[in-house]
Design a protein around this nucleic acid. Structure first.
Length: 289
DNA sequence: CACTTGACCTGTCCGC
DNA sequence: TGCGGACAGGTCAAGT
């Protein structure tokens, strides 16, 4: 899924597309994907206007004028795709190949707005979810309580970054950096990319990593995420932005899904291994145990 | 507590 | 062409 840069890309897109619009309908055939009752939807969602679109870690928050919010996690294969009235009804719209097919068999939630535009939550694997909750209760959710700091926060320092890892000293760095309670938003792609950037082997124990290496990792996590946001995220398989378009970060990836190809830094053949239960890509020359 | 593994789902790809 | 198994961007609930 969508890691921080992909969710941020969706957030930015939706901010431009749905703020101020009034929700006319919201339906789902998949209770697991959208557990709220019809009565809740009617009372707190229908006729409400979108007031803001926010993000915390990999969670997207759509605030409504009812003081409720849609809390959305895309997990592995979730998409939020907006379709405007012209794309729905007009012929030859530039977007039509991607958005005219909606809804499709992976559509889990369908919403419509007062300008005849629509928003679809699609999710092939059904791991993701949309939940309608009072805005004030979001901070009390268990995930929100324990999630770590935003790595792109201007006030987040390298020292704070390093100190977040002390609790996880006895595990490997890949497992630790994927742990959302350590730092928010890093997933499998950006874990591999940033560890390559900092020349740290993903199996290195956290306790063995030096301050200088943490400084590099801090810099690379931020650099990789900023670049990916600039490129509209990574479309490894399913990911698309709010307009149904793919991101291009994978064209700039150094190791992720590049096994068998040369390391851009030294030319050594990139290898794939398994670390923390996840497919993991390294340069065996740049990243040593 | 910290750490590891399996479960949740659907779809695709790869080897036989 | 079919079938079985591994694997896929994430998190949780169980185990130890």
């Amino acid at each position: 899924m969508p890691e921080l840069p992909e969710v941020e890309t969706v957030r930015r897109g939706l901010s431009e597309l749905i703020i101020g619009k009034q929700i006319l309908s919201a339906t789902s055939d998949t209770p697991k994907s959208f557990p709220n009752t019809v009565a809740d939807v009617r009372q707190f969602m229908i006729d409400a206007k979108v007031t803001a679109v926010r993000r915390r870690a990999k969670v997207l928050l759509i605030d409504l004028s009812s003081d409720y919010s849609l809390v959305i996690h895309l997990k592995m294969t979730g998409q939020l795709v907006y379709v405007d009235a012209q794309a729905r009804f007009g012929a030859g719209h530039p977007n039509d190949s991607l958005v005219n097919a909606l809804p499709d068999k992976s559509t889990r939630v369908t919403m419509s707005f007062n300008d005849e535009s629509m928003l679809f939550f699609n999710d092939q694997r059904k791991f993701g979810w949309v939940k309608l909750l009072p805005t004030a209760e979001i901070v009390n959710l268990p995930f929100m309580q324990k999630v770590g700091p935003e790595p792109l926060d201007l006030h987040f320092t390298a020292k704070q970054f390093r100190e977040r890892f002390t609790r996880r000293a006895r595990t490997n760095i890949k497992a630790a950096i994927l742990d959302q309670s350590v730092v928010a938003g890093v997933g499998n792609i950006y874990a591999d990319e940033s560890l390559w950037g900092a020349k740290i082997h993903p199996k290195r124990l956290v306790g063995s990593i030096t301050d200088a290496e943490f400084e590099l990792l801090y810099t690379d996590v931020r650099a990789v995420m900023n670049l990916s946001i600039e490129k509209g995220g990574s479309s490894n398989r399913n990911y698309v932005n709010a307009e149904g378009k793919r991101g291009s970060y994978m064209d700039f990836a150094n190791v992720f899904r590049r096994e068998g190809l040369p390391c851009p830094r030294c030319g050594t053949t990139i290898e794939k291994l398994r670390v923390a239960g996840r497919g993991t890509h390294i340069c065996p020359f740049c990243q040593v145990l």
